[in-house]
Design a protein around this nucleic acid. Structure first.
Length: 106
DNA sequence: AGTGTGACTTGGG
DNA sequence: ACCCAAGCCACAC
């Protein structure tokens, strides 16, 4: 497995309950500031096998990015379930729930 | 090798 | 706040 992929997985697993990170943030923490789309690919293919909290990753505007209705519904359910407010249109207040204290990672 | 494809981001109107 | 055009990058065909 590619080291970048490995780091992305670690970063995502480090997002605590009740918080979210954007794709760009995750990419940056993993060492590739322009790698947001790779984060997408990784979540899409490895979230299940690696037991990742994929629902804690949202886009830069603080919205649920996924299009599929089913998964979209599950994500809002998971988030609200752990204390993150999600508006009817799938928006989240980043000022409030964005996770930034990830300096402890290498 | 060339092209199309995203659960993206940023900058400008 | 919303829409769009560019830029982005690994991967599947």
């Amino acid at each position: 497995m590619q080291p970048y992929t490995q780091r992305v997985i670690e970063v995502i697993k480090a997002i605590p309950e009740g918080y979210v990170m954007t794709y760009g943030q995750v990419a940056g923490q993993a060492g590739s500031p322009r790698g947001a789309r790779q984060v997408v690919r990784i979540l899409h293919s490895m979230s299940e096998s690696h037991n990742l909290p994929w629902h804690r990753v949202v886009n830069a505007k603080g919205e649920i990015a996924i299009k599929d209705e089913e998964a979209r519904y599950r994500q809002t359910l998971y988030l609200s379930g752990e204390g993150v407010e999600v508006s009817g249109s799938g928006r989240i207040d980043l000022e409030k729930y964005r996770y930034t204290e990830m300096d402890f990672i290498d």
